[in-house]
């Protein structure tokens, strides 16, 4: 009995290992740019270390290698994600693909996390970060931002029967926030009189708000808009609160040549309304047509 059990276990192990290995080899064998493989980062800094002190690759290096390495999110729908066919897609990815096309090179995607985006640029492991990167002073000291292509701000969503269009309407009510978000920091600093009801996770905050705990919910405007569009009975009364931030591509500190090229290219794209088209292709389903002009920035076009 015991022997047979072990035998079954061994066969199961062999099967799973074989399947996994086969699949693994299959993926590393294909050189498709969008194979969602992490090995991509290798090429970006090979020439960087060869060229001496600079960590980044110049525009000429990129052209010569025939490949631009771009760091994107692979799990932030609808900005950067991988679809069921295993291809990168999303609003950021649209721009990444277009930049590569205009540069006449292939694009190689590297899956980045929110916490390591700056590090990837500082070590030259990617040429560009296009991962919903909000422009902040602190980050601008470490990386160089190009022109913005999107706006972000805080937003406040409330129940349809008591739409909050101004913070003064809150009165004695409580505002739901998620701990650690910009919304929490902003309200604590600027409106200390407002009572906050804090939740650790998005899911808890959402459930509480749906159950009418709190009169309003403050979060990034993209988040509250997406929420109001997906559920009935809620309205985003305040679309933009606090300082208006922007999202922009970023390159390694000092890589001015690449920065200028991206800015020039994005200006051309702005003239042809590329970002509105990208919005309609990727973000429309989530945010709806009403917020298109709130969120999209066409570089070079005065707002």
């Amino acid at each position: 009995m015991r022997k047979r059990f072990v035998g079954i276990a061994a066969v199961a192990a062999a099967l799973v290992l074989a399947l996994g290995l086969l699949a693994g080899c299959g993926s590393s064998g294909s050189s498709s740019a969008a194979s969602a493989s992490g090995s991509a980062s290798a090429s970006a800094s090979e020439s960087a270390s060869a060229s001496g002190s600079a960590v980044y690759r110049t525009l000429d290096d990129i052209k010569a290698s025939g490949k631009i390495v771009i760091g994107v999110f692979s799990d932030k729908h609808p900005f950067g994600y991988v679809d069921e066919g295993g291809e990168y897609a999303g609003y950021d990815v649209e721009l990444a693909n277009r930049l590569a096309e205009d540069l006449g090179v292939e694009v190689e995607f590297v899956s980045t996390e929110a916490a390591n985006r700056v590090e990837y640029l500082e070590t030259g492991k990617v040429d560009v970060i296009l991962a919903n990167f909000t422009v902040t002073e602190e980050r601008a000291q470490k990386v160089d931002f190009c022109d913005p292509y999107m706006n972000v701000a805080l937003g406040v969503v409330s129940h349809d029967d008591n739409v909050i269009t101004d913070l003064s309407q809150i009165g004695d009510g409580e505002v739901i926030v998620i701990t650690g978000t910009t919304a929490e920091t902003y309200l604590t600093e600027n409106n200390p009189e407002i009572k906050l009801k804090k939740f650790e996770t998005y899911a808890n905050a959402k459930t509480a708000f749906e159950n009418k705990e709190g009169v309003a919910w403050a979060n990034d405007n993209t988040e509250v808009i997406a929420f109001a569009n997906s559920a009935k009975g809620f309205t985003v009364g305040i679309e933009e609160l606090g300082s208006l931030d922007t999202i922009a591509p970023a390159v390694s500190k000092g890589n001015t040549e690449l920065l200028q090229w991206i800015n020039e290219d994005m200006e051309k794209l702005g003239a042809e309304k590329f970002f509105h088209a990208a919005y309609e292709k990727t973000l429309l389903d989530v945010y709806g047509a009403d917020y298109e002009d709130t969120l999209v920035v066409e570089p070079g076009q005065a707002k």
């Binding site: 729908h77 991988v82 980045t112 916490a115």
Partner: peptide, 22 residues
């Protein structure tokens, strides 16, 4: 290792979950 950009089983899982969040 997903934290340094290796797309292994956990990361693929997160990608699939997020792509279908809605």
């Amino acid at each position: 290792i997903l934290m340094i950009g290796v797309v292994e089983v956990m990361k693929v899982g997160q990608q699939i979950i997020e792509a279908n969040r809605m």
